[in-house]
Simulated scan of single mutants.
Amino acid sequence: MVVYAPAALLFLVFCASVLHDRRKFSNAVILGVAALCAVAAWLYRLIRSESASGAVAVWSLLVLGAVAFLVLTCFLFLNGVQMLRKEGRSLSNLLSLLAALGIIGVVALLVTAAFLRTPVLIGVATATGGLALYVSFLFLCFVCYAFLYGRLRVRRKADFVVVLGSGLADGSTVTPLLASRLKRAREVHARLSRRGGSPVLIASGGQGPGEDVPESHAMADHLVADGFPPHLIEREDRSTTTEENLLLSKAIMERAKPDYRCVVVTNNYHAFRAALTARRVGLRAQVVGSPTAAYFWPSATLREFTAILVAHRRTNMVACWLIVLAGAAAWWGSAHHGFG
């Protein structure tokens, strides 16, 4: 059982980190490393056992991984085609399709390098495969922890509920995506009200290109039309990004109550990144998500993950350069071996 000690220790570190602040991407990475250590320990014990059942389990795991890999690639490809049909052509709508094509390209490169064994191909394949594994590992960490974060309950009382805008249809109409956020905000507001007090709901969103009114005004009108009390609505109508949503809403809350607590409402795919942004700007808040159409979720999740990679670009650049150097070392080693 000693082989499981690193995984157990990392899991304890993860639990302590979540209790301290659940809004950290490092929590996702620690959980991922703990799971990786646990799987590695399990495989080590199976291999060391030298039993037939151990060999069957290892081969079954490899086959299952290959099938899952194939299913994922097909799913991303089909989802990418569906996104183009339903949402139109844009870079964000192409992410699922690009991810599927990227997976196929990496596999093709690795197979070609394995057959031809030329030094250049070995070096490029090593670097590309390493980068793909690195990004895939971070993506799995992100998806698993984002799922977990979305199911952690907000138990504290709150003075404000902040709803993030997401664009309007026809210049002034709340979209189904935004309507789901407003519905979730009303549910959160009702739950907080039952605990005592009357939280203020802040509709946050400025006027974007092609919009006739600020998003916050359309959101407030939608809420009032559904019977929400107008005197409990505050409008933040200058923001154009998630960070501005949170910063400008923070200013409103600090003026009204310096020791405020709040809950931020967005869609489920966006909740974890919004939580990371809230932590970065010093907002005393937890984030909850509302449901999203199933076909929209994969592409939106890829977009959120890409934004998180960019936000942590320094760390990721260092890791990527180390992987590229490993590829260069593989090229040099294979060339040197070939000349020797």
Rank of each mutant, 00 (worst) to 15 (best):
M1K: 05
Y4E: 07
P6C: 08
P6V: 04
L9I: 11
F11I: 00
V13R: 08
F14A: 01
F14P: 03
L19C: 14
R23W: 06
K24L: 15
N27H: 12
N27W: 09
V29P: 13
A38W: 07
V39G: 00
A40D: 06
A40V: 04
A41L: 08
A52P: 08
A57S: 10
A57C: 14
L61T: 04
T73C: 13
T73Y: 06
F77H: 01
R85V: 04
S92P: 01
L95Q: 01
A99W: 05
L101A: 04
A108I: 00
F115I: 01
R117L: 15
A127Q: 09
G129N: 07
G129C: 02
L131G: 12
Y134L: 00
R153C: 11
V154C: 07
R155P: 09
R155A: 14
K157S: 15
D159C: 04
F160S: 12
V161Q: 03
G167H: 00
A169K: 13
G171T: 06
L177H: 05
L178T: 02
R181C: 00
A185L: 03
R195V: 14
I202F: 03
I202R: 01
G210E: 05
E211M: 06
P214E: 09
P214F: 05
M219V: 07
A220T: 14
A220D: 12
D221S: 10
V224S: 07
V224I: 13
H231D: 15
T240Q: 06
A251Q: 03
P258G: 11
T266Y: 04
A271N: 12
A274C: 07
R279L: 02
L283G: 02
V288K: 01
G289L: 07
A293L: 15
F296W: 11
L309I: 09
A311Y: 15
A319S: 03
W321F: 15
A328C: 09
A329S: 01
